[in-house]
């Protein structure tokens, strides 16, 4: 095994000790008015990453550890889809450009999806992390000989990603839906899946995105006994199984989403708690976001976001 030059420029608690620049941002593009694509050099992560796994990055010394799904890992680089949501994701969008560096990226974290020949594999997504995983998972599933069906749901036409970032290219069968019907099929992926199940076209479903829709999906497939594997997004700190922040009840037992997941059998997840625990820090996050936006708007002398 070849171990790359250390990414730990801030090795001993200090940034750029060795003068080597790592975790450099190599690409950044808008995907929609609210989502963006970012690509970062992280050879140690890219080399080991497999679909289903995620990363945790920190933007700067005072930053938070932020878990992110991976869209692709190639040539020593990690590509991610990010939603402008709170302080960190907004700050990354507005303050960091190609050539800048992130302070830390750890990964891959979590367990990889078992890639094998299942037959007909569906991946359904209706939000940013799901769209990243949709592409990544089906690419691997197609290479493993599966018939791949991708469904991607967006709010409306304006929010649909540019074609090259959709999962079309890795899908044998592709469906795009919008809530208002302004592009593709009207509705969300649940409607499409109903149709697929009726036509007996589904051997296994993977899905990622809004936790609410994922919970509905679990109820939709449960009577049919169709294996349904979904990403469980929980608030994380370390991502290594050290803190229990990401704990969920799974089959009545405590599981850590970062270590034992993040993909779980949707039929065994206690969805109510999963959805609720995502809001644990809402008030504080709002404060941080408002404080940041105020600074941002002051800097630009106008309302930027």
């Amino acid at each position: 095994m070849q171990i790359e030059i250390t990414p730990s420029v801030k090795n001993l608690g200090q940034k750029n000790l060795g003068g080597v620049v790592m975790y450099r941002i190599t690409d950044k593009k808008d995907l929609s008015p609210i989502d963006y694509f970012i690509e970062v050099e992280a050879p140690h992560v890219a080399k080991a990453w497999k679909p289903g796994q995620f990363v945790i990055f920190i933007t700067h010394e005072k930053g938070e550890r932020i878990p992110m799904s991976v869209y692709k890992a190639e040539d020593g680089k990690i590509g991610m889809f990010i939603r402008k949501l709170g302080k960190t994701t907004l700050e990354l969008y507005h303050e960091f450009d190609v050539g800048d560096t992130l302070w830390s990226i750890t990964g891959p974290l979590g367990k990889a999806i078992e890639v094998k020949d299942y037959g007909n594999v569906v991946f359904a997504s209706d939000a940013v992390c799901g769209h990243a995983e949709n592409h990544a998972t089906l690419k691997a599933m197609k290479e493993a000989g599966n018939y791949t069906i991708s469904i991607q749901s967006f709010e409306d036409k304006e929010n649909v990603y540019p074609e090259k970032f959709l999962a079309k290219s890795v899908a044998d069968e592709y469906y795009l839906t919008t809530q208002d019907g302004s592009m593709g099929i009207k509705g969300d992926f649940l409607d499409v899946i109903k149709g697929l199940i009726e036509n007996d076209k589904v051997d296994i479903i993977f899905a990622g995105g809004n936790l609410g829709t994922l919970a509905q999906l679990a109820e939709l497939t449960r009577p049919y006994g169709i294996p349904t594997i979904t990403t469980i997004r929980q608030i994380m700190v370390d991502g290594t199984g050290m803190c229990g922040s990401c704990r969920i009840l799974y089959d009545g037992k405590i599981r850590f989403a970062c270590r034992d997941g993040p993909m779980f059998d949707a039929h065994k997840v206690d969805w109510e708690d999963v959805i609720r625990r995502g809001k644990r820090f809402l008030e504080l996050e709002k404060r941080a976001r408002e404080r940041y936006l105020q600074r941002l708007n002051e800097k630009h002398g106008k309302e930027v976001f």
């Binding site: 171990i3 990414p7 730990s8 801030k10 140690h44 080991a48 990226i105 990964g107 974290l109």
Partner: peptide, 13 residues
């Protein structure tokens, strides 16, 4: 001594 942070052994290597 070289320190490589951000390396979860069992996952990264």
């Amino acid at each position: 001594v070289e320190v490589k942070t951000d390396y979860l052994v069992g996952r990264t290597v």
